[in-house]
């Protein structure tokens, strides 16, 4: 009488392990990038929001000029030497330009008619002493 023999399929094939390794390396590189960014920039980022959508997140110390389109038209977001401000806003009252330069976490510049907002935030949670809001 022949004995029935069978073998369980392997839990993971060679292809699985290759795929797993690739995903692991990707995750590791993302995490490493975040750690390096946090160390280099203090984790401080600039968040750009138009309407209800976050359209850009960039390191706070990166000198750049960003032009975004709001409800009324284009506005220039300038980031230089750690400072951040708005230029050439299409709104009439120019309150956003009068808000001047910001640099710390928790600070925000708003162009309400154009529905554009830029905010400084700290990645990974705020440090002790950061403001939760500003009454103005």
């Amino acid at each position: 009488m022949a004995r029935a023999e069978f073998q369980l399929p392997p839990l993971a094939t060679a292809t699985d392990w290759v795929m797993l390794g690739a995903v692991f390396l990707c995750s590791l590189s993302f995490y490493g990038f975040r750690m390096l960014e946090d160390r280099a920039e203090g984790g401080l980022v600039t968040v750009v929001q138009v309407g209800d959508e976050r359209v850009a997140v960039l390191p706070a110390r990166k000198d750049t000029v960003l032009v975004v389109s709001g409800k009324l038209g284009e506005v220039r977001i300038v980031q230089q030497a750690g400072e951040l401000w708005l230029e050439d806003a299409p709104c009439r009252l120019k309150i956003c330009e009068r808000m001047g330069h910001i640099h710390r976490s928790g600070e925000v510049i708003v162009c309400a008619p154009n529905k554009v907002m830029v905010r400084r935030e700290r990645v990974g949670g705020e440090r002790e002493g950061t403001l939760d809001a500003i009454s103005r």
Binding site: A12, M19, L20, V23, S27, F30, E121, V123
Partner: peptide, 26 residues
């Protein structure tokens, strides 16, 4: 294959969560 897939999904989720630090609920 199943274990590989499960682990892959878990790792992808971890990766997305790591990147998701820039989202609304950081």
């Amino acid at each position: 294959m199943r274990l590989g897939l499960i682990l892959a999904v878990v790792l992808v989720a971890v990766g997305i969560r790591t990147l998701g630090g820039l989202g609304a609920d950081r």
